[in-house]
């Protein structure tokens, strides 16, 4: 199982903030998880089809698309940050 969190514009578009999910066998990286999520429907495809910049974090650290995901990880997806 992994925990997936969504923030800001993603949370609003998907009407989803957090979920627990079994890690599918086809998913070993952030890029593969994005591809997997994009299959859930139009709102998901719009966000995860690669046309928008979506940042990711694993266990609270910013990562790139090739980062490996393992069972027990907390994965987060969010738009580019705008604090300060």
């Amino acid at each position: 199982m992994i925990t997936v969190l969504y923030f800001a514009r993603l949370k609003e578009s998907l009407n989803y903030s957090t979920e627990e999910m079994e890690l599918p066998e086809s998913v070993q990286t952030i890029a593969q998880l994005k591809t997997h999520l994009a299959k859930r429907g139009e709102a998901w495809a719009n966000l995860f089809n690669g046309k928008q910049t979506i940042r990711a974090a694993i266990n609270h650290a910013l990562v790139e698309n090739d980062a490996a995901i393992k069972n027990g990880d907390e994965v987060a997806f969010f738009p580019p940050v705008t604090g300060g």
């Binding site: 800001a8 514009r9 969010f78 738009p79 580019p80 940050v81 300060g84």
Partner: peptide
Amino acid sequence: LKTEAPFWKKEQTPTGERWVEA
């Protein structure tokens, strides 16, 4: 902080709410 810390701003304008773009 501006480019790595996970904060997101949403602003209210006369035409409605919008997320601030990076």
